[in-house]
Amino acid sequence: MSQGLTNTKRRIKSISSTRKITKAMELVATVKLKKWKDRMENIVSYLNVMNNIISSCSDKEGPTDILELKEYNEATSNLYVVVTSSLGLCGGYNYNLFKFLNSLIKKNDKVLVVGTKGFVKYSREDVELNDEYVTLLDKLDYQKVQNLVYDLRNEYASGKYNKVYLISTEYVNSLTFVPREYQLLPLSGQKETNDIKQEVLFEPSKEEVLALIIPKYLNTFLYGRLIEASVCEQAARRNAMDSATDNAEELLEKLRIEYNKARQGAITQEITEVVAGASNS
C-alpha cells in the first residue's frame, strides 16, 4: 500500500511542477502576444494608407513595365514563402500550415521557409528548399524584410517562377487562426472598393510614384503578414499552454483524491491491525 502512496505522491509532485512551467509559458506568451499585437495595429494603419494610394493609382492603367506587374506565363513552377514558427508547443499552428501547404504544392514548386519548424519538416521531404531566411522571425525588423523582398524580386525577375505566393496564418480572433495564401508576385489588381473617386495629383508623375510605391507596398505587406503570423503563433501558444495548465490541474485533483483515499486506507488498516493485536493480548 505504501508503495502506491509514494508513487502517487511522486506523480503529484511532477505534475505540479509541469503545471508551473506551462503556467509560466502561458504568461510569457501572453506578454509577447500583447507586444506583437501592438506592432500589428501600427502596421495596419500604414498599410491602409498605402492601399488607398495604390487603388487610386491603378484605375484604367494598362500594363506597365514595372517588374512587379510583369507575368511570366511560360514558367511552370511557383515559389512558396511559408511562415512557420521557430519554437514548438504552440498547438496545431504549424500542423495546420503544413496541411494547407501540402494541398497546394506541386512537384516543381520551390519552398522558402521562415521558421525552423518548417525547415526541419521540409528538409526531410522531397521539396526544393531555400533556407536563407529560416531565422527571419527571431528578430524581425523592416530591414530584414526589405532584404527578403529584394531577393524575391530578383528570383522572380529571372523568370523561373510563374507566381510567388506567401503562406501564412491569418489572425481572425484570439481563438481562430486560418492558414492563407497570398499572391505576392505578380501583384494582382487591387479590388476597387472606394466609389468616391477623386482626381488625384501626382508629383512628379503617376508612373514614377507607382514605380516607387509598389516595392514599398510589397515590403510593408510582407512585413505586416509576418507580424500577423507571429501574433497567431503567440496566441496559439498561449491557448495551448492554457489548456495544458487546465489539464494539469484536473489531473492533480484526481491524483489528490487517489492519494487521500490510499492514505486513509493505509491508516484504517493500521488501526485494524493495532486493535486486532490489542484484543489478542
Binding site: I53, S56, C57, Q198, E199, V200, L201, F202, E203, P204, E208, V209, L212
Partner: peptide, 10 residues
C-alpha cells in the same frame, strides 16, 4: 496648406 488638392508625391 490646409484645403490642398488631393496629391500624392515622393
Amino acid at each position: 496648406l490646409a484645403n490642398h488638392l488631393p496629391l500624392t508625391s515622393i
